[in-house]
């Protein structure tokens, strides 16, 4: 199985803090990886590095064999954990913007996703509720036929109904020639979508592996393992 993402000994240091230290992990092509951990564990930094928005201090990161840069940005579809859209744009204009800059943007699929999410292209981003902005952003990100989807807290602002709409869209659009890395606090709701899981704590990988093997080995759900891992860490 070929690896779409190869990360080895990745370290990211800021002046006062170390966000990631010696992270090594691979994402096989066609796999969905869950990036788990409490706030401040380095998930967002790792995802921003994959998206080419943060430069690594040391170590190597390869996305489809290339170091993050202009070429990888063309094949990585990134969903940040905050609203990255200009408020003056309408949903449709945001679609035009994506279509203009990303050659893998599929307008037809965008329209389909807007229909599924009950959004219309005339709505202004600035006038949408938090959950609707979230759905618009997800529609944009999933409308790209990207090689790698990097989704930071994609279910954060969604109600249970919207969450199931999004999960359905995710399964319906998933292809075997792409991979997905996603972080979430709602482990129980999405753990059935993970092929692989990585538990991060204070910038280090504390546990990683195939979700099904972890379930078999520990006789526990990923959520239980999450509680165990971080409960343990906290009392240490």
């Amino acid at each position: 199985m070929s690896m779409l993402v190869e990360i080895s000994d990745l370290t990211k240091r800021y002046i006062t803090t170390t966000a990631l230290s010696d992270v090594t992990l691979d994402v096989p092509e066609g796999h969905i990886m869950g990036l788990l951990g409490p706030n401040g564990s380095g998930k967002t930094t790792l995802m921003k590095i994959l998206a080419g928005l943060v430069s690594p201090t040391s170590g190597s990161v390869l996305v489809d064999g290339m170091a993050p840069g202009v070429a990888t940005k063309a094949i990585v579809s990134f969903l940040p954990d905050v609203n990255h859209l200009d408020r003056w744009m309408s949903v449709g204009e945001a679609g035009d913007f994506y279509a203009d800059f990303f050659s893998d943007f599929d307008r037809k699929r965008f329209q389909e996703l807007l229909d599924i999410m009950d959004l219309s292209s005339g709505q202004k981003i600035g006038s949408l509720s938090k959950g609707m902005v979230e759905k618009a952003r997800l529609s944009l990100v999933f409308s790209r036929r990207a090689r790698l989807y990097v989704l930071d807290e994609p279910f954060g602002g969604l109600d249970p109904l919207a969450r199931s709409q999004v999960l359905d869209a995710l399964v319906a659009n998933f292809r075997t020639d792409c991979s997905m890395v996603l972080s979430t606090q709602m482990v129980a709701d999405v753990e059935r979508f993970f092929d692989d899981v990585v538990f991060l704590d204070r910038g280090c990988v504390v546990l990683s592996g195939e979700a099904e093997k972890l379930r078999t080995r520990r006789g526990a759900s990923i959520e239980d393992i999450y509680k165990e891992v971080y409960g343990h860490v906290e009392t240490r």
Partner: peptide, 17 residues
């Protein structure tokens, strides 16, 4: 595989397996 994955709401790779 994809239809069943959508129906039971799991990762398509799991259904494949």
């Amino acid at each position: 595989v994809r239809d069943l994955a959508r129906q039971v709401v799991v990762n398509p790779n799991t259904v494949q397996k």
